[in-house]
């Protein structure tokens, strides 16, 4: 008899509210990768995964701005020039990804469902600390793949916390799952050294600190930073002037997430960057 994917299960895990555990029990999510034992000799890299770079986020007067260029590469090849690296997880949370999109999109999907699953089963919203930790756990479970040279993901997580006091929160991670809360800005991916340089400069010696910028000024700095990164890093797309492809920019605020329309980004670009 053929068994359906959806079969009634008497061992309810709902009391725990942990969605990845449920998926693993049902065989719908790969088990946490084993950390490989180091072997003698030089490992041969025979296959290069598609990777996505560069992402940045900083706090400004209207919340947190999260931006990502659109390029996905595999080695020297540009695979895609309209990749979406800034992903909405729930009404107030954004995960931006640098690294292997196959793994990152799966993580985003697990995360999105985890938050909803928790709210539905436990009848309350997951806390910001819980959400930040959930992503950390997914990264830790993936670390075995990172060690094997495939599946590295280095995300940024931006959200809006209403408890105890309403404020935007910004985190970045390393590939092993350590979470770092950023006070002002964060950038990851291959183009991030240039981006971090610009954001540090702007925050300390620019016209005003990042946290005091208006929306247009913030967008302008994000575009300049990504374009600068693209100058020296082939894996970063920056702004494609010929193809009119702009970075993806989203803003997290008290009211939720806004995706800036391309026309608005194009206007700021034309006025202050081009």
């Amino acid at each position: 008899m053929e068994r359906s994917l959806v079969a009634f299960d008497q061992n309810f895990s709902g009391a725990v509210g942990d969605f990845p555990v449920l998926l693993r029990r049902k065989g719908l999510l790969a088990p946490a990768a084993e950390n490989p034992v180091p072997q003698a000799g030089t490992p041969q890299k025979i296959w290069q995964p598609t990777e996505a770079t560069t992402i940045l986020a900083f706090k400004f007067s209207g919340g947190v701005l999260v931006a990502g260029d659109r390029r996905a590469t595999a080695g020297n090849t540009v695979v895609y020039d309209r990749a979406d690296k800034v992903l909405e997880i729930d009404r107030h949370s954004i995960m931006a990804i640098a690294g292997v999109p196959a793994t990152a999109w799966e993580m985003a999907r697990v995360l999105e469902h985890s938050f909803q699953y928790f709210r539905r089963t436990q009848l309350q919203e997951m806390s910001v600390d819980g959400k930040v930790r959930a992503l950390s756990k997914l990264l830790r479970d993936n670390f075995g793949f990172v060690m094997q040279g495939v599946g590295v993901v280095v995300p940024i997580f931006a959200t809006y916390d209403s408890h105890p006091k309403p404020e935007a929160r910004l985190y970045f991670y390393d590939a092993m799952g350590a979470q770092f809360e950023a006070t002002d800005y964060a950038a990851t991916g291959s183009g991030s050294p240039a981006v971090r340089g610009i954001l540090f400069y702007e925050n300390n010696w620019g016209a005003k600190p990042l946290q005091e910028l208006g929306e247009d000024e913030a967008v302008s700095i994000a575009l300049r930073a990504l374009d600068t990164a693209a100058q020296s890093d082939t894996a970063t797309g920056g702004v494609d002037r010929g193809g009119k492809i702009y970075p993806l920019i989203k803003i997290v605020s008290r009211d939720g997430i806004t995706t800036l329309p391309e026309s608005k980004i194009a206007a700021v670009f034309k006025e202050t960057v081009a």
Binding site: L5, V6, F8, F12, G14, F19, L23, V110, H113, Q116
Partner: peptide, 25 residues
Amino acid sequence: RMAAIELASTEGFTRAAADVSLRRL
């Protein structure tokens, strides 16, 4: 309730939210 949420969530995760069907559930 937990069973219904589990079934719907796993179905929505593996396929798409639009494929979660109350009739089938």
